[in-house]
C-alpha cells in the first residue's frame, strides 16, 4: 500500500519550498535540492498550481513559491492534488462501483482505514514539516 512516486515527489518539492521560507525557487534550484528532474517537476507543478498549493511560472524570470501560508496547506492537500485519488480501495466513496456495496462487511473496514489516513495526512501541515526539517538539519541544508 504505497504512496505513488508522484505523490512522494510532490511532497518533497512542497517541503523544499516550505523550508525555503517564502522566497522563490526556480525549477532548476528545486531539482538540485531534491534530486527530482526539472522536467518531472514541471509536470508535477501543473496540478499543484491548479489546486492552489503552488504559485509561479516557468522560464528564466520564473520561479515557484507556496500559494498560501504553509500552516494552511496540509500534506493531504499536496497528496490529493498530485495523486488525484488517495482512497485505499475504489469503493470508499459509495459510488456504486461494486454490486456488493451496501451489504459488504469488508467495506466498513476500508472506510475506517481511509478516514484514519485522511485524518493523519490532514493533521500535518507543510509548516509542521518545515519545522521537522529545521529540527533535523538545524536550518542548514546538508
Amino acid at each position: 500500500m504505497k504512496i505513488s512516486t508522484r505523490g512522494q515527489y510532490a511532497l518533497e518539492a512542497a517541503l523544499c519550498l516550505a523550508a525555503n521560507r517564502g522566497s522563490r525557487l526556480s525549477t532548476r534550484e528545486i531539482s538540485e535540492r531534491t534530486g527530482i528532474s526539472a522536467g518531472y517537476l514541471e509536470q508535477l507543478f501543473i496540478p499543484l498550481k491548479r489546486d492552489g498549493v503552488l504559485d509561479g511560472a516557468r522560464g528564466p524570470r520564473g520561479g515557484y513559491l507556496l500559494a498560501r501560508d504553509p500552516e494552511k496547506i496540509s500534506a493531504g492537500d499536496v497528496l490529493r492534488s498530485a495523486e488525484q485519488n488517495v482512497a485505499v480501495v475504489p469503493c470508499v466513496k459509495g459510488e456504486g462501483l461494486c454490486a456488493k456495496e451496501g451489504d459488504c462487511i469488508a467495506q466498513r473496514t476500508w472506510v475506517e482505514l481511509d478516514r484514519a489516513i485522511a485524518a493523519r495526512i490532514d493533521s500535518v501541515s507543510l509548516a509542521d514539516l518545515a519545522r521537522a526539517f529545521d529540527a533535523r538539519y538545524n536550518g542548514a541544508v546538508p
Binding site: M1, E12, A19, T109, L113, A119, V124, R136, P142
Partner: peptide, 27 residues
C-alpha cells in the same frame, strides 16, 4: 536520500504507517 525525503519519512510516513497498523491490528 534528499533531506526532504528523510524528513518526510520521519515526520509523515512513519507516523502514517503506525496509524494504519493501529486501525488494522485492532480489528
Amino acid at each position: 536520500e534528499s533531506p526532504y525525503r528523510a524528513t518526510l519519512r520521519e515526520a509523515l510516513y512513519e507516523p502514517l504507517d503506525r496509524t494504519i497498523a493501529e486501525v488494522l491490528d485492532r480489528k
